[in-house]
């Protein structure tokens, strides 16, 4: 560079040069760079989450024996209750299978759950995502449903070797088909209303005009299997009021999402079972 140029002009030229190079870089290279950067820092995020786990472990270690016994007793009670529920669920599953076989209906797509720890939460005004501690190594794929004890968490938006990114239902880019509980007609759910310091909300539209939601009797918005990602019946949120659209056909409303979404620590990815060989022919 000529000597008479100032430091700032040189810097500007350098920036311009860098941007020019970036402009002409092939897309696949940019994509590769992105993935490489992601994979580069994934171990660090995972490491941080293990540190958190370790910290939790030591926090738990600090409990008194009596407290642990109490927690153990409580847990065994819960285990007993869940075992009972499991038996009921098994019975219902068998009943469903029997009815499907009787009516020669195709079987519902089934999932298995891959439980994963949350290693990073990135909840901003522009995007709402989590990074979880499992990736391709556990068979996770883009687009799969992610759930937790409170209902739907979101959808896998990208998958790395050992981590996956989950787009939360509160994200402004999230949209899904849903049902009002007890109603078969699909409605549209969108995330995106995330006021600071307050619980996240979503937005529901194309709700049929005959659905009524009040503060006293809110309705539950559940996931729909019609969209092809989520199974039926998982909670998306609660609707406390609906406003009719000007055409009188639909209603729109705000969906109160589970506040636990903001600090969820463990989620489950729903991985569909591969179709059985010969299932297509049936």
């Amino acid at each position: 560079m000529p000597r008479k140029l100032t430091h700032q002009t040189k810097s500007l030229l350098l920036v311009a040069f860098l941007l020019l190079i970036w402009w002409f870089t092939p897309v696949f290279f940019k994509r590769w760079t992105n993935i490489a950067f992601h994979e580069f820092q994934a171990p660090a995020w995972t490491g941080l989450s293990y540190l958190r786990d370790l910290r939790s472990y030591w926090v738990l270690r600090s409990y008194r024996k009596s407290e642990l016994i109490e927690a153990g007793v409580e847990m065994s009670r819960l285990n007993a209750a869940y075992m009972l529920r499991n038996q009921q669920a098994d019975f219902l599953d068998r009943e469903i299978e029997r009815l499907e076989a009787f009516y020669e209906m195709p079987s519902y797509e089934q999932f298995h759950y891959e439980v994963a720890r949350v290693v990073r939460r990135d909840l901003t005004a522009w995007w709402q995502q989590l990074v979880i501690r499992k990736g391709v190594n556990y068979g996770i794929k883009t687009g799969q449903a992610v759930v937790f004890s409170g209902g739907v968490v979101g959808r896998v938006s990208s998958v790395g070797a050992y981590t996956s990114t989950v787009e939360l239902i509160s994200s402004p880019h999230f949209r899904a088909a849903a049902h009002i509980e007890g109603d078969e007609r699909p409605v549209e759910f969108r995330g995106g209303d995330n006021p600071g310091l307050l619980p996240a909300t979503g937005h529901v539209s194309t709700v049929p005009a005959d659905i009524i939601a009040t503060l006293k009797e809110p309705v539950r918005l559940t996931s729909s299997r019609l969209g092809g990602v989520f199974p039926d019946g998982l909670t998306l949120g609660w609707i406390y009021s609906l406003d009719p659209s000007p055409d009188g056909l639909f209603q729109t409303g705000k969906v109160m999402l589970d506040p636990r979404l903001k600090h969820v620590r463990e989620v489950a990815v729903l991985i569909p079972f591969e179709p059985r060989p010969g299932a297509e022919e049936q």
Partner: peptide
Amino acid sequence: GLAGAMNPLAGGTYII
């Protein structure tokens, strides 16, 4: 590049 890889913005937004 590192910061950009962790969010859903178009690739390169953070670098630029």
